[in-house]
Design a protein around this nucleic acid. Structure first.
Length: 792
RNA sequence: UGGGGCAUCGUCUAAUGGCAGGACAACGGUCUUUGGAACCGUCGGUCGUGGUUCGAGUCCACGUGCCCCAGCCA
């Protein structure tokens, strides 16, 4: 807890931190250790960023550690290049994993020993059927698997075979090592999963030292344990694999150098997808190979390399990750959330300078000589909100606001944006028009007196007059003097796809046209995802560090492309646009947000008009049980549930020997059922009956009964005994309750006013307060009556 | 189809059984030498049907929808 107060927490509380809190409280672990285990088979993308944020962030929040581990168990897919890139990306994000990167491949020998241990214990066997045969024998989701003829090999034979596998005596696919678990398990993952397979391939780290490699399941569990991981967080598609994870660790703990306790446990969270892009490595590769983008670091890609090259700062990505948080719900994040995080980050870190992307030449007819102008790097609001009153120069040096300027000059010829002049302005246009005026930012108001056009009618040059300072102008535009103008290329990036969910969209089409290949998502690539224009940027930037991010006023955030930009040939990437409320209203309804979102297909109102009281059909036996229950006064809703579940009905019947069945039924169905089904209820029928009698007599209230029952289920103590031991009793003394009600009302004058103002939902709040105050013992009906009477 | 997971404003996400709140988006306004930022406001939600309860987004039942699992990938 003390660690939390020193640094702000990165990950907001969630279902996993709840588990951690409990584990820590129970003393199960001294220190939290998590891990981020990417496979080095491609470049990290925003999905990795989110996952790493959760793994590293939670470790950070608990003052624990997070290991960065290369999950390199498949030599055919992995490369040193990818591992290096992954490490660089994680470092860029700012994560700290201590001095060493962990590698699954470092543990190959230890893992091998554990596999032999499993063989020795008769828990693993060498199978020698073909892959096709194994698939056939595994059965299907509704047919159990059948044992392979090799399943009952002796320990000696298995051991000998496994050692020969390691020695390289067999070809790929001839044998595998399998865990002997359960071939008829409804969980397909448990049907004797493969632990080791033969792969004659060169591993980027271990070379040809090995020709057998551990599978994902075997490696995850074992390397987690070896790394000292306490909480192993992974994504939701591995929920079924957790059973293997637990099986392995339960059988391996205390052996082969693994501690008997504590051991790591796996917890899963949802991955997220992002609109207007794809993240699967296969699809990214298709975009690259198909020439749609220029490489893994193309600024349009969701790869971290791409985002970095685009100019996005790691702070922005972390901000984004913090916002999307962590959950178990499949989600597709609105791209605006990412863009917002990037803008927020840059707004206070990127100095403002001017550049004209699509230049239109302007001649000031009444300006004879250059006029020097000191332009501030920062707008008023950033200056005002600066915590220390200082503001950075592009060099990073913090200075007083009045010193944060650069010197430019207004000259008789200059450039403005083509878009900032309109011959026939749309309604609401606040820029320059023939005969109209506009203010040049920090330089003065001009009036357009004349314009020249080319043969096609395009405006090529404006003749303007510089007006006195008091002149009125509708808007303010940016500009660059010819004398200060440095030519530059500007790369304007837009979304990579024209639809928010290219994969879903492609899938739908596939269903319709039976397209054989899954190439269809490529049809939605946005042909205008990159627009290159040539314009001018003010020369002040020449003296700045090349990695300076700027806001080019009114144009968006930019920085120099770290690879293509050269001193004589500047290239700027647009990191993100500015929010453009004008453009939005003008652009009018273009893309009516294509359907195809995963949620769009979620039937909002499925509406089953058929049967309002849809109850499943009962077998004759269940039907007769139902009738007998009804005869004993059990309400129909409960009776139906009980009729279908003999175990519950039996419990009720036993309890009903000493209390009325009608009063018992809902307790059995609503409160006890889950534990009863699992055969793990600590409450016996007589216990429930006793409790219900107390309730019926008015000695206790439902609140108390519920709490006591929950406690009894967990501890096995008799509920009536708990009531007695704790001295629980319903308080229905009106005078006593009234005093408490009065106090609660007096303590919350604002809520009282709100209630009287019509916010009647607050009744529950007041009752809740009184219930809390009396530790659940007040008679709620009475409290409710008192509260509404007093507020009435 | 067997097993598993999930369901809260358009999107993301909160709410020990007790005020359905926040962020993004949208819309409107204030302010602004950026049609930016900031500030204020508006719009808008518990998948459905029953049940338990003084009180249900939360517990129970039955539905509905989406996702994952039948690689010697991870």
């Amino acid at each position: 807890m003390s660690a939390l107060t020193t640094k702000p927490r990165l990950v907001s509380p969630n279902f996993i931190t709840e588990i951690i809190d409990e584990d820590l409280k129970a003393g199960r672990y001294q220190k939290i250790v998590t891990r981020f285990p990417p496979e080095p088979n491609g470049y990290a993308h925003l999905g990795h960023a989110i996952a790493s944020y959760i793994d590293f962030g939670i470790a950070h929040d608990y003052g624990g550690e997070c290991r960065l581990r290369m999950d390199d168990t498949n030599p055919e897919a992995e490369k040193a290049e990818y591992a290096q890139a992954l490490i660089a990306d994680m470092r860029w994000l700012g994560w700290d994993w201590g001095p060493e990167v962990s590698y699954a491949s470092n543990y190959f020998e230890a893992l091998y020993q554990m596999a032999e241990k499993l063989i020795l214990k008769g828990l693993a066997y060498v199978d020698s059927v073909s892959p096709e045969e194994m698939a056939r024998l595994r059965g299907t989701v509704d047919k159990p698997g059948t044992p392979s003829p090799y399943r009952e090999r002796s320990v000696e034979e298995n051991l000998a075979l496994f050692r020969r596998m390691r020695a390289g005596e067999f070809r790929n696919g001839e044998h595998v090592l399998r865990a002997k678990i359960d071939l008829s398990s409804p969980n397909m993952k448990l049907r004797d999963p493969v632990l080791y397979r033969i792969v004659h391939a060169e591993h980027y780290r271990t070379g040809k030292q090995w020709c057998i490699y551990p599978s994902y399941d075997f490696a995850q569990a074992t390397t987690d344990a070896l790394d000292g991981v306490t909480h192993s967080l992974c994504s939701l598609e591995f929920v079924d694999n957790r059973a293997i994870y637990d099986w392995l660790l339960e059988n391996l703990r205390g052996k082969c150098g693994l501690p008997a306790a504590p051991r790591p446990y796996q917890y899963e969270f949802a991955r997220l997808s992002l609109e207007y892009t794809v993240v699967s490595k296969r699809k990214l590769r298709k975009l690259i190979d198909g020439g749609f983008v220029r490489g893994w670091d193309d600024p349009r890609l969701p790869t971290l390399a791409g985002q970095r090259r685009r100019g996005v700062r790691p702070e922005a990505i972390r901000r984004f990750a913090a916002q999307v948080g962590i959950s178990r719900t499949n989600r597709t994040v609105d791209i605006a959330l990412l863009e917002g995080a990037i803008r927020d980050d840059l707004n206070t870190t990127a100095p403002r300078v001017m550049a004209v992307l699509r230049p239109l030449r302007v001649v000031l007819t009444n300006l004879s000589e250059p006029r020097p102008i000191a332009l501030p790097y920062w707008p008023h609001d950033v200056i005002r909100e600066s915590p220390d009153g200082l503001v950075p120069l592009p060099s990073g040096q913090r200075v007083r606001p009045e010193e944060a300027t650069r010197l430019l000059s207004l000259t008789p010829t200059l450039y403005i944006e083509q878009d900032d002049f309109a011959l026939t302005p749309p309604k609401g246009f606040k820029r320059l028009t023939p005969g109209g005026t506009v203010r040049l930012k920090m330089a003065g108001v001009i009036r357009c007196d004349a314009y020249q056009t080319d043969p096609e009618g395009r405006v090529t040059e404006l003749a303007c007059t510089l007006l006195p300072e008091e002149a009125k102008a509708a808007g303010v535009i940016h500009w660059v003097s010819e004398e200060d103008a440095v030519p530059a290329e500007f790369r304007l990036y837009d979304r990579l796809f024209t639809v928010p969910h290219p994969e879903a969209e492609a899938k739908e089409q596939e269903d319709e046209h039976e397209t054989p290949e899954d190439q269809d998502f490529l049809r939605f690539v946005n042909p205008k995802s990159l627009e290159v224009v040539h314009g001018y940027i003010e020369k002040s930037v020449l003296g700045d560090p090349t990695d300076t991010r700027y806001q080019l006023e009114r144009n968006g955030y930019f920085w120099q492309d770290p690879i293509d930009s050269k001193p004589g040939a500047l290239v700027y990437n647009r990191i993100v646009t500015l929010k453009d409320t004008w453009g939005q209203s003008t652009r009018q309804t273009e893309e009516p947000r294509a359907a195809g979102s995963p949620k769009a297909s979620r039937a909002k109102k499925p509406e089953s008009p058929a049967s309002p009281t849809a109850s499943p059909n009962l077998s004759p036996e269940q039907e007769s049980r139902l009738q007998s229950l009804l005869a004993q006064g059990v309400p129909e809703a409960e009776a139906r549930v009980l009729a279908r579940e003999p175990r519950l009905a039996e419990f009720l019947l036993q309890a009903a020997r000493s209390a009325p069945a009608a009063a018992l039924a809902h307790w059995v169905v609503n409160d006890l059922a889950p534990a009863l089904r699992a055969g793990a209820s600590g409450v016996r029928p007589e216990g429930l009956a006793g409790l219900v009698k107390l309730l019926e007599s008015g000695e206790i209230n439902t609140r108390i009964a519920k709490d006591v029952l929950a406690e009894a289920q967990a501890s096995g103590e008799d509920p009536v005994e708990i009531v007695r031991r704790k001295g629980l009793r319903q308080v229905s003394d009106e005078g006593a309750l009234e005093a408490i009600v009065d106090r609660i009302l007096a303590e919350n004058p604002d809520k009282v006013a709100a209630y009287r103002g019509g916010k009647t939902g607050l009744l529950g709040f007041f009752v809740g307060q009184v219930m809390r105050e009396t530790q659940g013992q007040a008679k709620p009906q009475l409290v409710q009556e008192l509260v509404s009477r007093k507020l009435g």
